[in-house]
Design a protein around this nucleic acid. Structure first.
Length: 330
DNA sequence: CGTGTTTGACCGGCGC
DNA sequence: GCGCCGGTCAAACACG
């Protein structure tokens, strides 16, 4: 695997462009301002810049509004969830009745027809879903780690591809009874050494929403340096940038990211095209600080990233310099 | 020609 | 025991 490790490092740096709510607006504004400089070279359009600023304001306002909505939804979900848990505790016999189906899928698409918890159960570090822990508290959930990820796609996008940075090999597709949309089955391309599988199916309610169910844990490092999923080293929930409009919510805290303005590649391209301008010490320090604070908030991610980096250093001496850079960022 | 995808067949668990 | 259903297999196919 002949990777461009400088690209790999750059990929990490792009992190700040999407998932940091605090940084987001500032970074976005900077990018747009920089873009204006770029645009100004080609065509003298001050009014266009003004229009873009207006557009940016409008989008930012919409972004804020949606963020607030999402926050409210999150709060309602948490309240509902606590009520449900209370109910489960008080009526332990009732929760077993619907678990006729086998294995874990009973808690996947079937038991969750109304997807109220879109992104809410913080599919990130949760090894098993709430439903799992409620309905199947025994060996099955212990054996395989199950997590879910929700990815919004464009309406025109009919593929069942969830870009999480890992490489997958499709081994089957099936139309299930309760959902007319076919479910695709993927194995990690490192199989059989890596036992991870994932199922991808469109939500019945919202067909633009892909529900990816991961089973198991990768026993290898993040194989990809692709830009689509720069932060997915260990945590699939960190990747939501496959589409321009995406929302995520981490269960580890009240962090809500809602990026209605850009897709990740666009951000990356923008940042890259402006790389000469953003190479100021102030900007770099700003980025590093933001990244450090955000990454250190997620202990799983930090640990995995450190492991991945150290692994790369051990396996690829040529990447030593980049590795140091990564460590410094933490 | 090698690799990945598609898709019908098959398997096994489960309910009746 | 039978049928249903989700999950998996593997031959055929597509693609670079």
């Amino acid at each position: 695997m002949a990777m461009d490790y400088s690209t790999w490092v750059d990929t990490s740096l792009v992190l700040n462009a999407n998932p940091l709510p605090l940084l987001h607006d500032e970074a976005l504004k900077k990018e747009v301002q920089i873009n204006f400089v770029e645009l100004g070279r080609k065509q003298p359009v001050k009014e266009e810049a003004g229009a873009l600023v207006e557009e940016l304001k409008r989008v930012s306002a919409e972004n804020q509004r949606l963020t607030q909505t999402l926050t409210e939804m999150c709060e309602k979900y948490n309240a509902l969830r606590s009520h449900l848990m209370d109910y489960m505790r008080k009526n332990p016999e009732k929760e077993l009745s619907p678990s006729k189906k086998r294995k874990s899928q009973s808690s996947n698409t079937n038991s969750n027809p109304n997807n109220n918890n879109i992104g809410m159960n913080g599919n990130s570090e949760s090894s098993s879903t709430d439903e799992d822990s409620c309905k199947k508290p025994r060996e099955e959930t212990i054996k395989t780690k199950i997590s879910k990820k929700y990815v919004r796609t464009e309406a025109s996008d009919t593929s069942l591809i969830v870009k999480d940075g890992y490489q997958w090999r499709k081994y089957g597709q099936k139309v299930t009874r309760d959902n007319p949309c076919p479910r695709a089955y993927f194995r990690c391309s490192f199989a059989p050494s890596c036992p991870v599988k994932k199922k991808v199916q469109r939500s019945m309610e919202d067909q633009t929403l892909l529900v990816a169910t991961y089973e198991g844990e990768h026993n290898h490092m993040h194989p990809s340096s692709r830009l689509e999923a720069p932060s997915a080293a260990s945590d699939p929930s960190m990747t939501f940038g496959s589409v321009p409009c995406s929302a995520s919510l981490s269960s580890s805290g009240p962090t809500i990211t809602l990026d209605m303005t850009k897709s990740k590649p666009a951000v990356y391209n923008s940042a890259k095209s402006c790389s000469r301008r953003i190479e100021t010490p102030e900007f770099q320090q700003f980025v590093v600080e933001q990244m450090a604070s955000s990454l250190t908030k997620d202990p799983n991610f930090t640990a995995s990233l450190a492991a991945a980096i150290s692994g790369r250093i051990f396996h690829h001496n040529t990447n030593e310099k980049n590795g140091r850079k990564q460590y410094q960022q933490q």
